[in-house]
Amino acid sequence: MLESLLVVLLIGAIAWVGSYMGLTILFGVILPYVAVCVFVIGLVRRMVYWAKSPVPFAIPTTGGQERSLDFIKHDKLDCPNTKWGVVVRMFLEVCCFRSLFRNTHAVSFEQDPVSKGPRLVYYSSKWLWFFSLLFHYCFFIVFLRHFRFFMEPVPCCISFIEAVDGFLQIGSPRFFLTGGLLLVAILFLLCRRIFDQRLRYISLINDYFPLFLLLGIVLSGLCLRYFDKAEIAQVKIFIMSLTHFSPVVSNLDLNAMFIVHLTLVCTLLIYFPFSKLVHMPGIFFSPTRNLPTNTREVRHINPWNPPKQFFTYPEYEDRYREAMAQAGLPLEKQPNQKPAE
């Protein structure tokens, strides 16, 4: 846990020092281009790798009654048996995180009046579902809001999102709700790992690192907006020059915190295809989610089964007929009788 925090701090510190050493070309131009290439190519490679992997068994997870006899009620959302049903389940999974909604929390009681002894009770636990939903949607909106730096003129849908996001009209620059909520959600997800003993036991550096990295990105972003302000006009000139492949850095005054923010985002992009964060395209490749639950209707053939060399009984008899006849075994077709007999 601490080492992943240190790594994130180190990356930030390197970027901070780099911006003062005049390495803006390295951190502001080369790194973003490399990061975007690694991100896109890495994700596509990962998707091709998954698409190449055969699914040996039909393993859709079931959360309800599979389609069966007519008088048994079929759970169409959790156990779809058609392609269209799978699309609906997938949509709900991606947009509403239905499987996290089923999350439970186990509590053990030493002395329970019901069982008159120790008892394990699973309670519904919606916290993870709520905060991960909050995190993902806030992140998405924050990402969308950044398109004001990529587009000139800024389309009205982006301005509309900003207007709704900042409707509380707190301060100037206006406080955006999603920025604050994103921070809250990340802190919850982090605290969940740190303070839940059971979860902490199974948490590894690759669980903590993305959280600290995202925390770093969010904090540096909030800092850029509300405290150590970047000049957004300069930032936009710089970003637009990057996306138009004619980077300008020389006469721009970019603040160090901006370089830190950019470098942390680039780190995220580079880290993304090799980490657990690839669940973004990965969810669509999960056989537990994307297979229809029609295991009683359709036989799932393991795609890596070798082609079978069938040797049917008529073929067997054709080959060994003479020998079988000599041994006096019963035959479906007698060997050709000699004309003399």
Partner: peptide, 30 residues
């Protein structure tokens, strides 16, 4: 496996991920 779906998925993903680069082309440079 599932060639057509995978190709469509990859194309959509790449288009979305590179959107900061190509959306800038709709307007003018800044």
């Amino acid at each position: 496996y599932n060639k057509s779906a995978v190709y469509i998925g990859i194309v959509i993903l790449v288009i979305l991920l590179t959107s900061p680069f190509w959306v800038g082309l709709f307007g003018h440079n800044y």
